[in-house]
């Protein structure tokens, strides 16, 4: 597995906002590898840095952000790549889906125009070929009555259809990597379930690599091969999603899983919670950032930051001095 060259290799990436008051380090020392056709889930609570990472990969970090480290896509270094090169990559090889489909679609342009725009600028297709490709893509993302949709404006579509259209736009140039930042947060549960099923189908059909940002462990568990758990801007645990979710070794991952209410959990007991809250942005702790909330924290945890180290043969890694015993 390690012999294969990764599609995406992120090494020592940090994102900071030195101009903010106080200066904020949103992400530090992030490391990840994603092979072609595989999927990776970025999990964490708000402020953990998962969206910052999703934005940094295709060079979409907010103005004022300083991104350091190395992000290699197909071997090409993206940090400090020219804006023109990043635009070209985003148009053709990396698709991006934002959280809010309402905001991601231009309100004054018809769906058809927005779909074909990318194709016509990056692939130099003529109008007829672009329209045919747009139709095919709308069918693929299971939009009913695709031909009629091409002539509609975004506000004429329901929330679920809008998200399907923005997925179609992200996929129309056949990218090899799709980055989706909480693509279902703004949607109803039933619509969300449909979009999740669509992601699964698209991955199988298109051999697409996927980076999925989510706050929901179950969503990531259902869609992703690998998982990366972030806390306060650092990776606390990474590895095969099934193994990590079944048997989390980091106390934070375990606590997060326990706090997620399920339809099966016994009633009558209080829900498990995580005491306290994440360190405020701009606060940098000397030791493990989770130590103040961790049930297993010792003096060493407060003094010394644990490195991300392998704990199992399957590639699982955890940043903890005293990882949970394997079940």
């Amino acid at each position: 597995m390690s012999a294969e060259a990764p599609l995406l290799a992120v090494l020592g990436v940090g994102v900071s906002f030195p101009g903010a008051r106080p200066p904020v380090r949103a992400l530090a020392d992030v490391e990840l590898r994603l092979l072609a056709g595989r999927s990776l889930g970025l999990v964490g609570e708000s402020g953990a840095g998962k969206s910052q990472l999703a934005l940094a990969i295709p060079g979409l970090s907010a103005p004022g952000a300083v991104v350091e480290g190395s992000i290699r896509f197909c071997g090409e270094e993206l940090i400090n790549a020219s804006p023109a090169r990043l635009r070209a990559l985003r148009g053709r090889h990396i698709g991006f889906i934002a959280q809010d489909p309402q905001a991601a679609l231009a309100p004054h342009l018809k769906v058809g125009t927005q779909l074909t725009e990318t194709l016509r600028s990056h692939h130099a297709l003529d109008a007829r070929a672009a329209r045919a490709a747009a139709l095919q893509m709308l069918e693929r993302v299971q939009v009913p009555a695709p031909a009629a949709r091409l002539g509609q404006y975004p506000h004429e579509l329901s929330g679920g259809l809008r998200q399907r259209v923005s997925i179609a736009i992200a996929l129309i140039a056949s990218p090899s990597l799709l980055i989706a930042d909480e693509p279902t947060t703004a949607l109803d549960v039933t619509v969300e379930a449909g979009i999740r099923a669509l992601f699964l189908k698209l991955r199988q059909e298109l051999k697409l690599a996927l980076v999925l940002v989510s706050h929901d462990l179950a969503v990531v568990g259902g869609l992703c091969d690998e998982i990366l758990v972030l806390y306060a801007g650092r990776v606390v645990e990474s590895g095969p999603a099934a193994a990590v979710l079944k048997d989390p070794r980091h106390h934070y991952t375990a606590a997060l899983a326990a706090a997620s209410a399920t339809l099966e959990a016994p009633l009558g007991l209080p829900l498990a919670t995580i005491a306290g809250s994440q360190p405020a942005p701009g606060v940098e702790l000397a030791g493990c950032a989770f130590a103040p909330r961790c049930p297993a924290a010792a003096a060493r945890c407060h003094a010394e930051r644990p490195p991300l180290a392998s704990v199992a043969a399957g590639g699982a890694r955890v940043a903890c001095h005293f990882p949970r015993a394997s079940a």
Partner: peptide, 22 residues
Amino acid sequence: RLLLDAVPRLGHPPLALEAGES
């Protein structure tokens, strides 16, 4: 039943719900 089926569950792949939107 539809609402229940739509809830993501740990250890289960997403269901292909065909029930569309409201």
